[in-house]
Structure formats: structure tokens, C-alpha cells
Amino acid sequence: MSNLAANLTDTAGRVPHRPAVRLGREVLTYAGLDEASACVAGGLIAHGVRPGDRVGLVLDRAPAFAALYYGVLRVGAVAVVVSPQLGRDKTHDFLDASGTRLCFAEGSDAAQPTEPDLPARCLRVTVGPDFLDQVALWPQHAGLVHRADDETAVVTVAPPADGDPFDAAAASTGLSHRELQLAAFIAATLLLDLKPSDTVLSYAPMSGTFGQTCTLNAVILAGAALSQPLNPDDLTAAARTIDQHGVTILAGELAVFSAFSALLHTAPRGLSGTTLRLGVSSRPPPSEETRTRITGTLGVPLVEAEWLTGGH
């Protein structure tokens, strides 16, 4: 095993013109994602980022996240992945404790009215809707920096339990290239049986371990396609997406499957005749009754990945 980003370069070499990640009408093929991540890598090198440096990613939009994630890994740096919903103070403390020196963060909008507070030494790069167009102008670095299996690839944050104080150091979880490679392999082969013809519609945040392992990394390894809903609350539009893009796997928290079940209960024709074959949840249903209700309505089996990702 080596750099996790090799999964992207290998797959781009095999199926360059297949869609890799999609958000609404924004689509990156494997060749496009490989090129975008190479531009990110070139930009990072131009900013002095070197192997082992910490680079923050405070965003969840799949195409930009994927380009940044693999671009950071390409240069041997460590992706410090933080949910945009973590909050200003916790984001500041976590990035500070992790030694992050450069951070890519979503700009403020109606859904994220307050931009994250970054440590003084941390250079901020705002990620807006046209970010990938800007990245295309950056110098490319197509190579991969070799990383040992046990070297850290990604650092994630585990939010505290309700009522517990936030300890930035204790909340930090480092994942090595080996751990992420193995998790992607298990998810792609044993859990999901992913094929290049599969399309995964993911409601899982890219900032979480589940979103990275069971959707992004597994999809890239298998050469499948990852789709993200433009508006997660619009289930009717998501049902159309499932039909239009031939979605075969639905991924997310259990609440997503419950919401879809409720939708289909009131509008049974919503997903009839689709190619959907599997659901994967970050946590198991609270009871077999819940599982039976969900799987019976959706018409597909539901598997859990909590044992693989810790439920994050």
C-alpha cells in the first residue's frame, strides 16, 4: 500500500471519462477530478505546503471536497477534516490544536451564516461555487508523494456527547493511509459490492468518516459514481435523481431512510421501478421492526457500516 490518492490516479487511468462526483449539474469525470486534484497539489506546493503539513478542509460539497482531499494527499500532507456545522469556537480550537497552517473553508451563506473562526497563523482560502474554475488556473503537480502505510493521511474530529465539554485534543482522530485503504476496500468489496456501473447517492457529510470511507473512498476505488443531493431536504427531487441517474445505492444516516420510507408511504410510486439495490447506514436501526418497515417500503436491503467507521 502507499498514498491513498493512488486510488484516484489509478481509476482515472482506467475510466477517465466516467463521472466520479456529482452535485446537481456540477459533474467531475475521473479525468477531471484527477486534474483538479493535481491543480490543488500544485497550488499547495506553491504555498509552501510540504509532506506532513496539516491542511484544513471545512466544507462538505462533494466535487470541491474530493478535489481538495486528494490534492492534499497527493503532496503527502494531512487533511484535517472538519464539519462546517461544528461551530466557530470548536473549529478554531480544533484547527489550532492540530497545527493547521492552511485551511479551505466554505464561504458564508444562508445555510452557513457564520464563517468559521480560524487560528491567526492559519491562512484561509474561501471555497465558493466557482472554486473549481479557479483551481483550474493553478499550476499542476501530477505526481504522488510516497507515504508509509502507518503515516497519517486524515485527521477528523469527533463531536462531544451532549453536555460534555469540547476537548480539541481528545476529539482528534488520526487515520493512516493503511487504515483508509483497508476501510475503502472492505466497503467497496464486502459491504457494498461496488461496480463501475454503480451510482451512490450519499446524504453522508464528506467531513465524517462514514462519508469518506463508505462513499467517497470506496467509490473512487471501484470506479463508480458518487452523487450528492443539491438540497438534502427535497426528497421528491432526490427520488427523481435516483431515477434519472440510475442510482443503485442510497447512503446516509438512518433518518434519511426513515424520511424516504415516509415519502414512499404517502406516494408509493416515488421509487417504483428504479435501479436502487441497497441502502447503507452509518448506524443500525434501533429495532428489527424499524428495519423491516424501512426495507419493506424501499424494497432493498439495509446494511450498517458502524463497525467500519465508528458511526461518524
Rank of each mutant, 00 (worst) to 15 (best):
A12F: 10
H47Q: 13
F131C: 12
F185D: 14
F131A: 12
E151V: 10
H141P: 02
H141E: 10
L95C: 04
A305C: 11
S2R: 11
R25K: 02
T199R: 15
A77W: 02
L201F: 07
A111P: 00
V219E: 09
V200K: 13
A158S: 15
R22K: 07
T29L: 05
D150L: 12
A171S: 15
Q181T: 09
M1K: 02
A46I: 08
T236Q: 13
A105I: 01
A66V: 05
D96F: 01
L68Q: 09
I186A: 13
G143A: 15
G56D: 01
R22C: 08
L250M: 11
T295P: 10
P196W: 10
A251E: 14
C39R: 15
G299H: 06
P63Q: 03
P63T: 01
V256C: 08
R88I: 00
L95N: 01
S37L: 03
P113I: 05
P19G: 10
A267W: 00
T266A: 14
L235G: 07
G270V: 00
V303F: 11
C122A: 06
T173W: 11
P160I: 08
L194P: 03
Q228P: 01
L59G: 02
I45R: 14
C39H: 14
P284R: 14
C103D: 00
D10L: 12
L118D: 00
H17G: 11
L102M: 08
G163C: 09
S287W: 10
L95V: 01
L230D: 10
E304R: 15
N7P: 00
A158F: 12
S176A: 11
A110K: 05
L226F: 04
A97H: 01
L250D: 07
E179S: 14
F166E: 11
L191D: 13
V40G: 01
G107Y: 02
R101H: 07
V21D: 04
R101P: 00
T215L: 15
V300W: 02
F94C: 06
T11Y: 08
L44T: 08
L190W: 08
R74C: 12
A222R: 06
G56K: 05
A20S: 14
G99M: 05
S207F: 12
V75P: 04
D198G: 10
D10E: 14
P51A: 06
A225K: 03
A136W: 03
P268T: 02
G246R: 05
C214H: 06
Y203C: 12
K195V: 05
Y70W: 15
C103L: 08
L278H: 05
I249D: 07
G42M: 04
V300H: 10
A41I: 08
W138L: 15
G43T: 04
Y203R: 12
N3R: 12
L86I: 06
T215M: 15
V157W: 01
G71I: 02
G311T: 10
